[in-house]
Computed example of a mutant assay.
Amino acid sequence: MNSNEVQAYWFEDDGIIPNNPTLPILLYPGALTEQAELTEKIFNKNNWRNSWINGVFDFHHYHSNAHEVLGVLQGNAIVQLGGEKGKSVEIKTGDVLILPAGTGHKRLASSNDFKIVGAYPEGKEYNLKTENAEDRLQSLEDIPKVILPETDPVFGDHGPLLSEWNVSS
């Protein structure tokens, strides 16, 4: 995968979902297609830990205290990014989505075999925020405090995340 294949999505605060004011969502299409079964190990090796395997919730949610990576192990899904006014994106086996803190996401549809791995930089504990006015107010304070990851979840010390998010090492 080369950096020309990376897709970046920017979303503004829509009054319900804060999204991230300075960082885009990144999609690495097919980045792990040939080694999808190793997705969790690759994330963990690159210091994106506290991982889990499951699906994506079918309601808008976000994490105000952590960035998140999602890697599709198998199947496919359509996810809504950025809240109700955001964008629907199809993801499939081997695709990797990197969501900056505050970014809304929701599963709209998926194949019966859909499974993803989620992980967080340095194994950060994450919260779960929804379309709630109280959550949003606190989140607006929390999101700018989330530090940038030191590594790309797929490529480690190099990779598109580090340049797209202007991470200096």
Rank of each mutant, 00 (worst) to 15 (best):
L137S: 14
A101P: 09
D113M: 03
S169W: 14
G86S: 08
S3A: 11
E125Y: 10
K145R: 14
I98N: 05
S163A: 12
N166S: 15
I16K: 13
S111P: 09
L137M: 13
E34D: 15
N2A: 00
T130H: 13
S139A: 13
E122Q: 13
Q7P: 00
Q74E: 15
P18W: 01
G102Q: 07
W52T: 10
P160M: 08
V167Y: 05
F11I: 03
H158Y: 12
G104H: 11
T103V: 13
N112E: 15
T93C: 08
I78P: 02
L148K: 12
K92C: 09
F59I: 14
L27C: 04
E84Q: 13
A77P: 07
V89P: 02
G156N: 09
V167G: 04
N44V: 12
A66V: 10
K41H: 11
Q74I: 01
D14R: 03
F57I: 09
Y9M: 07
E40I: 02
W52A: 11
W52Y: 11
G102V: 07
F11H: 10
N46I: 03
H105D: 11
D113H: 10
E141G: 06
A66E: 08
N4T: 11
L23A: 01
V96A: 08
P24K: 02
G71Y: 08
L38A: 10
S139D: 12
N2K: 11
I147C: 06
H105E: 13
I116W: 01
E131D: 12
K145L: 12
Q80E: 15
